[in-house]
Simulated scan of single mutants.
Amino acid sequence: MMKIVRPFLFFGALLFVAVHMSQCASSPKLQDSIALDLGEPYYQSWIAGVKGGGSGFDVYIPIKNNPNHIILDSVYFRDRGTKLEEIQPGLFRGRLDSSLNKSDIIMSNAPYAEYGNTLPKHPKPLPFELKDNECILGYREHHRKKYFKISGVIKKEPLYYPGTPPKKP
């Protein structure tokens, strides 16, 4: 009788641990507050003035004061995420490119002309539910990854670049 019960107990415990661990990894917990003084975050759409130059959004996170030396590393906005870079002291930018206005696919009726085409990249679904004026700020505090939701992200006038957008202002 014990020989029959032992494998069921083992597999039951293994299943319990696997389900418990998968739920922890799939839903990051949002923090209620963040130990830094945020300015007014905003976003700006942009489009390059040349064919194939690209388009997208830039999300800006201004920081007034960071007494605990929190490291900002990512932003999630409109079903996409990207790394943050500090473009000037106290101002972080996340650039979210879109597939519009890009000419990276060769369309031809010649047999081997389309050989170099790559499959389009589909963004991974975010583990967060966001409205159009919300973003998630990813950061590290005391070597632990944390997330904070920012509501009321302001929309600014779009930028129209004559060429491709500059990498750094």
Rank of each mutant, 00 (worst) to 15 (best):
F128M: 00
H143I: 07
R144P: 11
C135Q: 00
P120W: 03
K145I: 09
F148K: 00
L84K: 05
L159P: 10
Q88R: 14
K83N: 15
C135P: 06
R95E: 07
K145C: 08
R144I: 12
Y112L: 07
Y115K: 12
P89S: 02
K131C: 06
L119G: 09
I87C: 06
L130F: 02
E114L: 04
S151I: 03
L119K: 10
Y115S: 13
Y147L: 00
Y139M: 00
P123R: 04
S108K: 05
F92M: 05
R140M: 10
G90Q: 01
T164V: 09
F128G: 03
E85A: 15
I150L: 01
E86W: 08
L159H: 11
E114T: 15
A110F: 14
Y147A: 00
I87A: 07
K145L: 08
S151Y: 06
L137N: 10
L119C: 07
E134W: 06
L100M: 12
K102Y: 14
R93M: 05
S98A: 04
P111K: 08
P123A: 01
G138E: 00
P162L: 03
T118P: 13
G152A: 02
L130M: 01
L96E: 01
P162V: 08
Q88A: 10
E86Q: 07
Y112F: 15
R93I: 05
E157G: 10
Y147F: 04
S108D: 03
Y139L: 02
P89D: 04
D104T: 11
E129D: 14
E114A: 09
R93C: 06
I106E: 07
F128A: 00
L130K: 03
Y115W: 11
I105Q: 12
Q88W: 10
G163W: 08
K155H: 14
T118G: 07
K146Q: 09
P120L: 00
E134M: 01
Y161D: 01
S151M: 02
S99E: 11
K131N: 15
P123M: 01
H142V: 12
M107F: 15
F148H: 01
R140L: 14
L100H: 14
P162I: 07
H142I: 12
K124A: 13
P111Y: 08
P111T: 08
I136F: 02
P123V: 03
L96A: 03
K102M: 13
F148S: 01
R144G: 10
E129V: 13
N117L: 02
E141N: 13
S108F: 03
N101Y: 05
G116Q: 09
G94P: 07
H142G: 13
K156M: 06
E114D: 09
S98V: 04
Y161K: 04
I105D: 09
G116P: 13
N117S: 06
A110G: 11
E157Q: 14
R144V: 15
N109A: 12
D132F: 01
C135H: 04
P89F: 03
D97M: 14
Y147P: 05
